[in-house]
Design a protein around this nucleic acid. Structure first.
Length: 260
DNA sequence: ATGCCAGGCACAGCCTGA
């Protein structure tokens, strides 16, 4: 069956992770790849290397922090939106939306929100509210939409190796989870969970305490499919081998395949 | 309660991440 593969990968610095990104693109050939945490200004984005790998790209960078990009294999993604609506004073590069390979793809890097409570957590919740508002418009657009990225939310205690030491973390707070649930309730399908309802799946393993070696992970990188697209879900998974490379990002690429 | 590791930048210790 012909399928389209859409992936999301928090690279944690695109310049230091470029060799891994190129190796992953060559091996896994996603048709669309959403990247987060570029940690690079627009002029530092390695477009030449990415083009040489066979991908067109859009990027929304920022010096030192944040930054998102959308790559399309053998095509130039068409920009639809740069930044979430709802707060013109928000200057953090966390959202980019484009059309590619017949899909509309929203690439997002939701704020971490730690420490909580505090202004960073307030910003996270406000950003989430804006995403929910925009999600409503996207879902009603009639297009085939994917919302993909680092949501910085552990949806349930089944999505983490052990919630004990994370109970006060912004990623597990009821306010964060309630908003994730509210977004899903618009009709989005959490593709990894839908495809693997009984399986422990992680997409992030922090650099501390040998968490990768012990498989002490969290599932925080998500691909949400609008209802119509959910029916086209074929498979979903995590490219864990990328996390095992030397000097890896703390996230692994996460993907879905959709019937074409 | 904090550090544990890592990337980026003021290239020397911070800040941020999750």
């Amino acid at each position: 069956m012909k399928t389209i593969k859409v992936a999301t990968y928090n690279v944690n610095g695109i310049r230091s992770r470029l060799p891994h990104l190129l190796e992953w693109l060559a091996k896994e050939s996603p048709d669309v790849a959403c990247l987060q945490e570029l940690k690079a200004a627009d002029e530092s984005f390695p477009i030449a290397e990415i083009r040489a790998a066979g991908y067109g790209a859009l990027w929304h960078g920022q010096r030192s922090w944040n930054g998102v990009a959308i790559l399309a294999r053998g095509a130039d993604p068409v920009e639809k939106r740069r930044g979430l609506p709802g707060n013109s004073a928000d200057d953090q590069s966390r959202y980019l939306e484009a059309a590619a390979h017949g899909l509309v793809v929203g690439c997002l890097y939701l704020p971490n929100g730690n420490p909580q409570p505090g202004p960073k957590f307030d910003y996270k919740l406000a950003w989430f509210d804006r995403l929910i508002e925009h999600g409503k418009a996207l879902h009603g657009s009639g297009e085939a939409v994917v919302l993909a990225g680092d949501f910085n939310v552990v949806p349930t205690d089944f999505d983490i190796y052990d919630p004990k030491s994370w109970r006060k973390d912004a990623l597990l707070q009821p306010e964060s989870r309630e908003r994730y649930g509210r977004l899903l309730a618009q009709g989005w399908v959490d593709a990894l969970r839908a495809r693997h309802p009984e399986e422990r799946i992680y997409t992030f393993w922090d650099y501390f305490r040998q968490h990768w070696e012990r498989n002490s992970g969290l599932r925080i990188d998500h691909l949400l499919l609008d209802g119509k697209l959910g029916k086209r879900l074929v498979d979903a998974g995590v490219d864990k081998w990328v996390r095992g490379l030397p000097k890896a990002s703390d996230h692994a690429p996460t993907w879905v395949t959709l019937s074409a």
